[in-house]
Simulated assay, not measured.
Amino acid sequence: MSKRSPRRARGAGPAFPSESDPRSKKMHAAAFEALSLALASADDARLDDARLMEVVPNPDDAHLLAVISAPADACESVREALSEARAYLRREIATEVNRKRAPELGFVVLATVDADAITKTEDEVR
């Protein structure tokens, strides 16, 4: 009796998209560009200092995670603004990404460190 590997559903792709998959790379690049432009043109002043760092699948291409950097004192307001703008940002991605359904969006906001503040702190310590 031979051992058989478990059967996969017909047409099912890999559980996690490969970094080398050209379709995934193209979709992530289009999503990155669409989000970058949408953030830059947003009317919400809370998003002025927000910068898109990366767009990654979370856990697959149907869900995208946008990694955003913002000044430490503005992180909470940026999170709120992104939450309020989620539908708009998803529509912007849908116009650029050729898919049956636009991917769901999640956000991670990372605090950036002000280089001038570090220099001032170092000078104070000396």
Rank of each mutant, 00 (worst) to 15 (best):
Ser20Gly: 11
Gly13Val: 13
Ala30Arg: 07
Leu47Ser: 04
Gly13Ala: 07
Ser69Asn: 05
Asp60Met: 06
Arg51Ile: 06
Glu54Met: 00
Ala45Ser: 15
Ser20Val: 15
His28Arg: 14
Ser24Met: 15
Ala62Asp: 12
Ser41Phe: 14
Leu37Gly: 15
Pro71Lys: 02
Ala74Ile: 02
Val67Ala: 00
Ser20Trp: 08
Lys25Glu: 15
Ser18Tyr: 08
Met27Asp: 12
Val56Ser: 06
Ala70Cys: 02
His63Thr: 10
Ala62Ser: 14
Ala74His: 09
Phe32Gly: 01
Ala42Gln: 08
Lys26Gly: 00
Ser69Tyr: 08
Glu33Pro: 04
Ala30Gln: 12
Val67Thr: 04
Met27Pro: 01
Ile68Tyr: 10
Ala50Arg: 08
Leu65Glu: 09
Val67Phe: 05
His63Gly: 03
Asp48Trp: 09
Ala30Val: 01
Gly13His: 13
Arg46Ile: 05
Val56Arg: 14
Gly13Trp: 09
Ala50Pro: 10
Leu52Phe: 10
Leu37Thr: 14
Met53Trp: 07
Gly13Thr: 15
Met53Ile: 06
His28Ile: 07
Ile68Phe: 08
Arg23Ser: 09
Asp48Arg: 15
Ala50Phe: 02
Pro14Asn: 15
Leu47Gly: 03
His63Trp: 15
Ala70Glu: 03
Met53Arg: 15
Asp44Leu: 02
Asp60Phe: 12
Ala45Leu: 09
Ala30Glu: 15
Ala38Pro: 06
Ala74Asn: 04
Gly13Asp: 09
Lys25Asp: 11
Ala74Glu: 03
Ser41Gly: 08
Leu47Pro: 01
Pro17Ser: 05
Ala50Cys: 01
Ser36Trp: 11
Pro59Ser: 05
Pro22Glu: 06
Phe16Arg: 12
Ala31Lys: 04
Asp44Trp: 14
Asp43His: 13
Ala31Gln: 03
Leu52Trp: 07
Lys26Asp: 05
Pro17Phe: 11
Leu65His: 07
Ala15Ile: 10
Asp43Thr: 13
Ser20Cys: 04
Val56Pro: 00
Ala62Phe: 12
Asp60Cys: 04
